[in-house]
């Protein structure tokens, strides 16, 4: 099974480009779950929600569907500050954030074949 659905002869490989008019959407939240008593919360993934109450509801639906979790934390992704001791300065693109968040990353102008 391939998700790298091939480029048909004659089609251009649109990898990704800035699209005008696409909004920010709901903010992203990171989800931490403690599966049972005695262990600590573990980062389990992320999701989108308009507010904290909604984020908690969504986290329950998405990440604890099979009953995993006695405690759920949600944190806005933008509120997480990061530091990576092993990475030398030149390797770190955005050394304060956990991800290449869209708001912090410049999308280059040229779009083309790999």
């Amino acid at each position: 099974m391939t998700y790298d659905v091939p480029v048909a002869p004659g089609e251009k490989a649109e990898l990704e480009e800035r699209i005008e008019g696409v909004g920010e959407g709901w903010p992203m939240w990171e989800v931490f779950v403690r599966a049972r008593r005695g262990i600590s919360h573990v980062h389990i993934g992320s999701l989108h929600a308009p507010d904290a109450r909604s984020a908690l509801q969504n986290a329950r639906d998405v990440y604890t569907r099979r009953g995993e979790g006695v405690s759920v934390w949600v944190v806005p992704s933008s509120e997480i500050h990061a530091f990576e001791p092993e990475a030398a300065a030149e390797y770190v693109e955005a050394n304060e954030k956990v991800y290449r968040l869209a708001t912090t990353y410049e999308i280059p102008d040229e779009v083309g074949q790999m």
């Binding site: 990704e16 699209i19 909004g23 920010e24 992203m28 993934g45 992320s46 991800y99 290449r100 869209a102």
Partner: peptide
């Protein structure tokens, strides 16, 4: 989508594509 978003795109953007 969450995994893709770690690479600097938003989910809305990917959906629009």
């Amino acid at each position: 989508y969450s995994a893709a978003e770690t690479l600097g795109v938003t989910r809305d953007h990917l959906q629009e594509l």
